[in-house]
């Protein structure tokens, strides 16, 4: 899968989820938008909120809080949708990531990034590229290409359907 991994720079866009600071390499980032009205798409995993209209294109939005098993929360004036282009199944797709707030673009040198610890992490290890250090803060750097685990979407859809088909048609 190395060929689909995007070459990265050392610039990162940082954003907040709850109290924690996360970062994604700027090569994924297309733009940052205010929160738009989301059209829910039924029978999909809960962390996929629905779709929004980004200048005439229909773009799915991921709730990053829900993705990382944090509590659901109303959006605020600081909330934002980060539009990114990531690789999914070897092909580029555009997605929006709903986050609590967008901070800034930072430069983090490669040697300031450490491998993620093996234990004590709430989020699945595979999506974390490393832990960066910037002015005494720790920043969790995400590999957005691994946002979706290989079969996460298919299985989630199926689970959802099996569970709910019965009640919806009864």
């Amino acid at each position: 899968m190395n060929n689909t991994e995007t070459a990265s720079t050392n610039q990162y866009l940082t954003f907040m989820l709850g109290e924690e600071t996360f970062a994604a390499n700027v090569i994924y980032i297309r733009e940052v938008l205010e929160v738009l009205p989301v059209t829910k798409v039924p029978r999909t995993p809960k962390f996929i909120l629905g779709v929004v209209n980004v200048r005439g294109n229909v773009v799915p939005v991921i709730d990053m809080r829900l993705k990382f098993d944090m509590s659901e929360q109303e959006t605020t004036a600081d909330s934002a949708i980060i539009v990114m282009e990531i690789y999914f199944d070897g092909e580029p797709v555009t997605i929006g990531a709903l986050v609590d707030a967008v901070n800034e673009v930072l430069e983090i040198e490669k040697d300031k990034i450490e491998k993620p610890p093996r234990i004590g992490m709430r989020i699945g290890n595979e999506i974390i590229e490393g832990i960066g250090k910037h002015e005494d803060r720790f920043i969790i750097i995400l590999n957005m290409n691994r946002l979706f685990a290989p079969d996460e979407l298919a299985i989630a859809v199926n689970d959802h359907r099996n569970k709910e088909t019965n009640e919806r048609f009864s």
Binding site: T44, V58, V93, L153, V157
Partner: peptide, 8 residues
């Protein structure tokens, strides 16, 4: 709707 929703 794109690839994310291919199983929908």
């Amino acid at each position: 709707l794109g690839r994310i929703y291919r199983d929908l």
